[in-house]
Amino acid sequence: MSDASTLTLTPRPSTLSREAFVARYGDVYEHSPWVAEEAFDAGITAQHDAPEALADLMGQMLQQASSEQQLEVIRAHPDLAGKAAKSGSLTDDSTREQAGAGLDQCSPEEFERFERLNNAYQEKFGMPFVIAVKGLDRHAILAAFETRLENDQAEERRTAIKQIINIARFRLRTRAEEAA
């Protein structure tokens, strides 16, 4: 694995047209290419060829978006170990991320627990539970699920946005590492 400070995205974002940039990086935020569009419109420079800098810019676009736009991005995420995972209809990134955390290896009891927690979370907050699963296993995710169910609406929304920005950062780093 390369040092994050020396990684470069390929193709370099600063060399792309808006259309090519959105085609390549529009899926970094789950089903939300508008984040890439806004980032491009804000100005992509050579510094954004580094995954960390591009992640920061794209994260700013999400943070300054309207509450409704933020909620749409949160709601674009699938339930963890949920119906989409079982049916094989996750995005490629989500499939890899959930498998990397071992969510594809849950016992029937663990799947039932995820389903129960997904339902309780959805009922309380009106959105799916979102967590950057990279580096976590299903036990840590379940523990975080139960802890975050204790949050209030505002805190949980802020947490979900922060987690989504982390997911995008991991996705951009992974793309740069794969190209290195």
Rank of each mutant, 00 (worst) to 15 (best):
148 R>F: 08
170 F>M: 11
133 V>F: 01
1 M>V: 08
39 A>E: 14
151 N>I: 06
154 A>N: 04
6 T>R: 15
177 E>W: 05
160 A>Q: 02
61 M>H: 04
159 T>V: 13
17 S>A: 13
164 I>M: 00
154 A>T: 07
59 G>P: 04
93 D>G: 01
8 T>K: 11
147 T>I: 03
178 E>G: 09
59 G>E: 04
62 L>I: 02
64 Q>G: 15
56 D>R: 11
52 E>Q: 13
66 S>C: 11
168 A>Y: 00
39 A>K: 12
105 Q>I: 09
38 E>P: 13
122 Q>I: 07
151 N>H: 08
67 S>Q: 11
110 E>Q: 10
134 K>T: 13
37 E>V: 14
8 T>M: 07
42 A>E: 11
141 I>A: 00
150 E>K: 14
40 F>Q: 09
145 F>K: 03
141 I>L: 01
72 E>I: 05
128 P>M: 00
159 T>R: 15
131 I>R: 10
111 F>D: 10
4 A>F: 13
136 L>D: 09
168 A>N: 04
108 P>V: 04
69 Q>H: 11
157 R>H: 02
53 A>C: 02
28 V>I: 12
88 G>F: 06
76 A>V: 01
101 A>E: 07
107 S>V: 05
72 E>N: 12
115 E>K: 14
58 M>K: 01
102 G>T: 00
121 Y>R: 11
21 F>S: 10
55 A>T: 08
139 H>I: 02
122 Q>E: 15
54 L>S: 06
4 A>G: 00
6 T>A: 14
22 V>C: 03
77 H>C: 00
114 F>E: 01
137 D>L: 05
63 Q>F: 03
160 A>G: 00
151 N>F: 03
161 I>E: 00
150 E>Y: 06
53 A>E: 14
143 A>R: 15
125 F>K: 10
168 A>Q: 02
145 F>L: 05
109 E>T: 14
102 G>K: 02
94 S>N: 04
99 A>F: 07
44 I>C: 03
4 A>H: 12
112 E>P: 10
117 L>V: 07
30 E>G: 01
70 Q>E: 00
8 T>V: 07
140 A>F: 12
152 D>K: 09
3 D>A: 15
134 K>I: 12
36 A>C: 09
33 P>C: 11
70 Q>P: 02
98 Q>I: 01
109 E>A: 15
34 W>S: 13
127 M>F: 14
61 M>G: 09
80 L>G: 04
133 V>R: 04
47 Q>E: 15
127 M>R: 15
50 A>L: 04
42 A>L: 06
142 L>G: 12
11 P>H: 04
46 A>Y: 10
123 E>V: 11
124 K>A: 08
173 R>S: 10
85 A>I: 09
88 G>Y: 08
13 P>L: 03
48 H>M: 05
147 T>V: 07
13 P>Y: 01
160 A>H: 02
141 I>G: 05
109 E>C: 08
161 I>T: 01
18 R>K: 14
150 E>N: 11
65 A>F: 06
166 N>G: 15
81 A>K: 02
68 E>Q: 13
44 I>P: 14
77 H>V: 07
118 N>L: 01
95 T>S: 10
50 A>I: 06
74 I>A: 08
85 A>Y: 03
24 R>T: 08
149 L>S: 10
63 Q>A: 15
112 E>Y: 05
23 A>F: 08
27 D>S: 14
103 L>K: 10
71 L>K: 04
130 V>D: 07
170 F>R: 08
20 A>C: 09
